[in-house]
Every structure is written in structure tokens, then in C-alpha cells.
Design a protein around this nucleic acid. Structure first.
Length: 478
DNA sequence: CCCCCCCC
């Protein structure tokens, strides 16, 4: 890791223009907030000095960035939202948290910093595992996978059905342990391991497949995509390929496993990991559309009247104007970063007022400006530089988004129609042909889910899954 | 369709 970049400690709330090179040291499973339907995912990032910072992803960004921030990989990160952790919860003052969102710039660096990462782990010897049985401690082990058993369904003591799958690990002393993967780990990590197993010849695989497992909290465990994480196991595997071959083919560690030795180190018993159905039953986002005839004006002058966007999907971009880049949202490989107008304003009619946001065309129409001008404008605008209020009635098509736990609706202006454009009452109730706004598109509801996302998506519906992996002890192989 | 923020 070079040192031309800042370190985690150099970045405080308000620090500008920073870039930190980090390794994704831990990646926790996405969770649903206890007091709101918000989904969040915490990561631990580590810089070249081994300092760490907690980074959080929210909502849709979790799936958006899941292939972007891979455990064990190195990234250059800039422009994350940096703030002190909530005073209500922080253990000590000065604790910093990064929020990763669409405006965060993330660049993959092809560097292997696994040694740095590994150096922060303390691994428990397989032979010491029995003393931790049933103690519910978090620990890490390191080893090579030499077998994957079929997945199976078990019933927990609460009657819940869980899918599990066993892996057999071997360490450098040829001790074996059975690692049981639970729920989402079966769908994700086990599937991933199996895929790689099929792609490679047996000797390639066993010689290079190495991993470290952390049962820390609900953290994912490490499996490096290219299996380069634990170099030392590569050479060990090559040197001892005959013995490992024999273990794989003979499987004598299985026949010599007394079932009574199977005892879980940790069981999912934490009641607070489960969600009461009644607390999620009524939750839904209500969206309503309606028309308002009235006037609009900007009340908050000091706001940002634009954001950098993807020319393909309009989502926020972390790139510089004009740059061609792969968009994390729409996956367009040659997206272009272009400004998009945005304005926060107040709508009034004789009965009252609401605050509303307009984005894109309606914003440009209202401001009588365009995104590029807005982007280049450095001073707080005045009425001379853009229109800040409309002095005659216009018709606004507004979307209301009611948010759980937020007392106020948020309003968004989808388009603006000048009343003169509407000829008489014949068009009443119809969308006008000429409107100032985005083209109206009627899209089939789409789902962005893919198989590999099912973990996160299920996590919010069924709340927290039991995604801990437990280590079960098998008889040693010698 | 887009912005903002969000959790322990």
C-alpha cells in the first residue's frame, strides 16, 4: 500500500479532497434496523497502517455495491460521507463512520494486501477448538477446504427450518474440522465455492483453495475470489499434494467421525435477531400522485441546484463531468457523467404550502436555466441568475412519498404545466400532451433482484436470517 | 425511474 494517499486517521468530518486506500477487512450481513425499516450493512475498512473505520451502506446501495466492495480486495475511496458516530451510541468521542453512497468514489486497486489483513486476525488452532465448544465465543480459523457435503435441512430447537451445508477444512497439520454453513452462507459462499470447484481441476483447486473463517458476530467469512488470500497455503498445498489428494479421495476423516463429537460452538439463539411479524405487517411505502395549481418559489437559496448523474439512468455519479465510466447502478459500461438540475422549493396555493423537490426538466423549466449553467454557478444564485419564483399560477403534478417514521411526506414535482397549455375542460383528468417534465413512460414493474441478491432481499422480509456459521468438531485425522 | 438521509 503506497503512502501518497491519506490514512483513515487523516479524514475527519469536513475534510475535503481526500482519498484513502483501504482493504475491505470485514463485511457484515445486511440487516434491518430495529426501529425502522431501513436496511443497512456495515463494513470494516482497513488502511495500510492497519487502522480501521466502520463504513455503512444503506438501502438499495447494499445490492448496488455488493460486487463493488469485495471482502479482502483493495480500493481507493474518496468522498464518502464522514461523520462522527451518533453521540447516543458511540463508545468514545471522535469515532468516525463513513457512509458509502452513489456519490462515493470507489476504485478497485489490483493489489494483494492479504498479509496485512491476515496479520490482524488471530487464528485458533483446530486442536484448541474443543475447549470453546458451547461457549458461544467468536473466533477465527484458517484452513483449506477439502470437501463439500450436500446441503441439508435441519430444524432448530425453535422449530424453524434452516438449510445448512458442511465443509471439511484441513490445517497444515492435517487436522480436520467440519465447518457448518448456515442459511445465506449456503446460498452464497457455498455455491461460490462449488462453482470454483467445478471450474478447476482437482489439483488446482486443492492447491490453491484456502480461506480463513471468522465467526465473529455475523460477519461473512473470508473467501478470496482468486484464492490468493492465503499465499502460504498455496505452497503448502503443492508440497503436500499427495497427502491432500489422499484425504480428498479416501475421506477417512468422515468414517472416523463419532457423531457424539459434533457439538456446536455457537447456536443461533438471539431472540432480538428475529422480527415480530406484527411490526412489519403494516409497513409499506404509500405513493400518491396529484395535481396542484399554485405558485412555486425557492425559499432556501443556499442549496445545490444540480447533481452529477449517469446519462443512462440519471442516478448519482461520483465521476467528473464528461467522464466515461461504468455505472454501478445501471451497469452501463460507458456511462457519461453529466449534470442534472435539482431544486428544492416551496409550492403554495391559497390553502397552504408544501416543500417539494424538482429534478431534471421540471427543475430546469422552473429555474429557467439548465444543468450545465447550474453546475458552473459558484455563487449563491440571485433572481438575476435564475428564476426563483413563478408569479403566475402553474399546474404541478406532484408525487407524495410517505415515509415510515417520518412525520412529513416528501413531495416531488414530476412535471409542470402552464395553464394556458390546457385547452378548456376537455382534458381535465388527463395527462396533458405538452408538459414540462420527463417524458411519461409506462414501464412494467421491474425487479432488480438476481439470484445472488436473494440473501439481502430476504433479509428484509424475513428479517435477520440465521446466517452465522458454526464450527463443529470432528475427530482429528491422525 | 433521478436528489437528500438512514443503524447500532
Amino acid at each position: 500500500m503506497g503512502d501518497k494517499f491519506q490514512l483513515i486517521h487523516d479524514v475527519s468530518p469536513g475534510t475535503a479532497g481526500w482519498t484513502v486506500k483501504v482493504v475491505v477487512a470485514e463485511k457484515f450481513s445486511p440487516r434491518v434496523a430495529q426501529r425502522s425499516p431501513t436496511k443497512y450493512q456495515n463494513l470494516i475498512l482497513m488502511d495500510s497502517e492497519g487502522s480501521t473505520v466502520q463504513a455503512t451502506l444503506y438501502g438499495q446501495n447494499i445490492t448496488t455495491f455488493q460486487d463493488e466492495l469485495i471482502l479482502g480486495k483493495t480500493y481507493l475511496i474518496s468522498n464518502a460521507l464522514v461523520k462522527e458516530t451518533n453521540a447516543e451510541y458511540k463508545a468514545k468521542s471522535g469515532e468516525i463512520q463513513w457512509t458509502i453512497s452513489g456519490r462515493t468514489r470507489i476504485r478497485r486497486v489490483e493489489e494483494n494486501n492479504s498479509n496485512l489483513l491476515i496479520s490482524t486476525y488471530s487464528f485458533t488452532d483446530f486442536e484448541d477448538l474443543p475447549k470453546y465448544m458451547d461457549s458461544n465465543v467468536d473466533l477465527s480459523v484458517i484452513g483449506m477446504i477439502i470437501d463439500i457435503k450436500p446441503r441439508r435441512i435441519i430444524q432448530t430447537r425453535f422449530g424453524k427450518e434452516c438449510q445448512v451445508q458442511d465443509l471439511v477444512l484441513v490445517n497444515k497439520r492435517f487436522d480436520t474440522v467440519l465447518l457448518t454453513m448456515w442459511e445465506a452462507f449456503v446460498d452464497n459462499e457455498c455455491k461460490y465455492i462449488c462453482q470454483n470447484l467445478k471450474k478447476k481441476t482437482c489439483s488446482d483447486w486443492k492447491a490453491s483453495q484456502s480461506l480463513s473463517i471468522s465467526t465473529k458476530a455475523d460477519s461473512s467469512f473470508f473467501i478470496d475470489g482468486e484464492f490468493e488470500l492465503v499465499e502460504e497455503f498455496k505452497s503448502w498445498g503443492h508440497t503436500n499434494s499427495e497427502i491432500i489428494d489422499n484425504m480428498i479421495s479416501e475421506k477417512h476423516y468422515l468414517t472416523s467421525t463419532p457423531s457424539k463429537l459434533f457439538s456446536k460452538l455457537s447456536v443461533l439463539t438471539d431472540e432480538k435477531d428475529f422480527t415480530e411479524i406484527k411490526s412489519i405487517q403494516g409497513l409499506k411505502t404509500v405513493k400518491q400522485f396529484f395535481w396542484i395549481k399554485g405558485r412555486a418559489s425557492v425559499k432556501v437559496l443556499n442549496q445545490t441546484y444540480w447533481y452529477m448523474s449517469c446519462n443512462n439512468c440519471n442516478k448519482i455519479s461520483s465521476e467528473n463531468y464528461g467522464d466515461i465510466y461504468p455505472c454501478v447502478f445501471c451497469k452501463c459500461t460507458d456511462a457519461k457523467a453529466i449534470p442534472r438540475a435539482k431544486v428544492y422549493m416551496q409550492l403554495t396555493d391559497p390553502t397552504g404550502y408544501i416543500n417539494a423537490t424538482a429534478i431534471g426538466n421540471p427543475a430546469e423549466y422552473f429555474l429557467q436555466s439548465n444543468a450545465q449553467i447550474l453546475m458552473n454557478q459558484t455563487l449563491i444564485p440571485t433572481a438575476a441568475s435564475m428564476r426563483l419564483s413563478i408569479d403566475e399560477d402553474e399546474i404541478f403534478y406532484v408525487k407524495a412519498i410517505t415515509q415510515e417514521l417520518s412525520p412529513d411526506c416528501k413531495f416531488e414535482i414530476l412535471f409542470i404545466v402552464n395553464p394556458s397549455q390546457i385547452a378548456g375542460d376537455k382534458n381535465k383528468g388527463k395527462a396533458p400532451v405538452e408538459h414540462i417534465g420527463e417524458p411519461i413512460k409506462f414501464l412494467e414493474p421491474t425487479t432488480k433482484r438476481s439470484l445472488f441478491h436473494s440473501d439481502t432481499d430476504d433479509a428484509q422480509s424475513s428479517k435477520k436470517k440465521c446466517d452465522k456459521s458454526t464450527i463443529e468438531i470432528t475427530k482429528k485425522n491422525q
